[in-house]
Simulated scan of single mutants.
Amino acid sequence: MKTYSRNEKVCETDERIKKVCLVASGLLRVVVDEDVTTDFVREGDLYLHLEATEPKYVLVAALPTSVYFVPADDIWTICKEYPPVAFELLRLTIERVANLRKHLQQISSNTSEARIACAMHELTLLAPGRNGGYDKRISQGVIASYTALSREVVNRAMRDLQVRGLLRKDRHAVHLQMDSKAGTPSSPREEIGPPKL
């Protein structure tokens, strides 16, 4: 097991053939094209590289993160001996592709504020704070990179949400409160829990 600080690079494309990452604690983000976040890998999740969607990527710690690296050969051996494990890994891969598709739909069809609200809601599931909300150490830059917006747009929208009483911050977390008209933003990960290996 290795531990990484926030914003520290965990592994790159060239290392993908040799090992699979299992997040013991914290949160990783999958980064392509230098600083575009396409996905997050939370505590208890495996990262399986998808050549078709992310030909070149870097895993970066979004929070302080501990990661187990399992040799890919060992994973394949386990899959051969225990087919249910192979099916579970296939299920995780299918869910990840579906999440990526939903995320791209949100980016292409929602307003900036809706994209930011959806991302913040998703972060409450991925990196929960102590009393709700999401971990305050997640930067606006990470949200900008995930929503395909500039940091300035994210900053402005978050200030506006705060002024309207829909966003509050405490010592440990950022809390998003949606009014009854707007409802809770949908998240591609709403129903997804950690792998059932």
Rank of each mutant, 00 (worst) to 15 (best):
A173W: 00
L59A: 02
V30E: 08
A182H: 13
L59H: 07
A24S: 09
T3R: 01
L167M: 07
S186R: 15
V32I: 15
L89W: 00
T147F: 01
K2F: 13
A72Q: 13
V67H: 01
S112A: 11
D135G: 02
V20D: 02
N131K: 05
P128S: 01
E54Y: 06
P64T: 05
L28R: 09
D74Q: 14
G141T: 15
V154F: 05
R171W: 03
D39T: 11
V23H: 02
R156G: 03
G165W: 10
H175I: 11
P194A: 11
R159T: 12
P188N: 08
K80R: 09
S108C: 04
E54D: 05
A62T: 07
E43D: 02
T53C: 06
Y47W: 12
S150P: 03
H103R: 15
R130E: 14
C79P: 00
P55A: 09
D14P: 04
I17R: 13
C11M: 04
Q177W: 15
N110Y: 09
S108Y: 12
Y47L: 09
K80C: 10
R159D: 08
V163E: 12
A52Q: 12
E122L: 07
G133W: 00
A72N: 12
K181W: 10
V41S: 01
G193W: 08
D73N: 14
V60C: 05
Y57I: 02
V10I: 11
A52W: 14
E191T: 11
R164F: 09
Y68T: 03
E12L: 08
G44E: 04
L90D: 02
K181S: 14
G165L: 06
K18P: 00
R130V: 15
V41A: 00
G141R: 12
E8G: 13
V32M: 10
D160K: 15
D160C: 11
K2Q: 10
P64A: 06
A119Y: 11
G44R: 05
N131G: 03
A86F: 02
Y146A: 00
S139D: 01
T93H: 07
A148C: 09
L63V: 07
I107V: 07
L90R: 05
V36L: 08
C11S: 04
E190G: 08
V142S: 01
R156Y: 11
A114R: 15
V10Y: 02
N110M: 08
S66W: 03
N110G: 01
V60N: 03
L126W: 08
Y134C: 01
A157G: 09
T77K: 12
S108P: 09
L46I: 13
K181Y: 11
V30I: 14
L28N: 03
A24T: 06
V41F: 02
N155Y: 06
A86H: 01
V20N: 03
Q177N: 14
V30P: 09
T124L: 00
P194T: 13
S108V: 05
A173C: 04
C118H: 12
R115I: 03
I17H: 10
L104N: 15
A157M: 13
Y47P: 09
I116K: 06
C21H: 11
H103G: 00
K196L: 08
E113C: 04
W76D: 13
V85L: 06
P84V: 04
K196I: 10
G193D: 08
D179E: 07
A86T: 03
V23Q: 03
E54K: 05
T37C: 07
T38K: 13
C79W: 00
A52F: 15
Q106S: 01
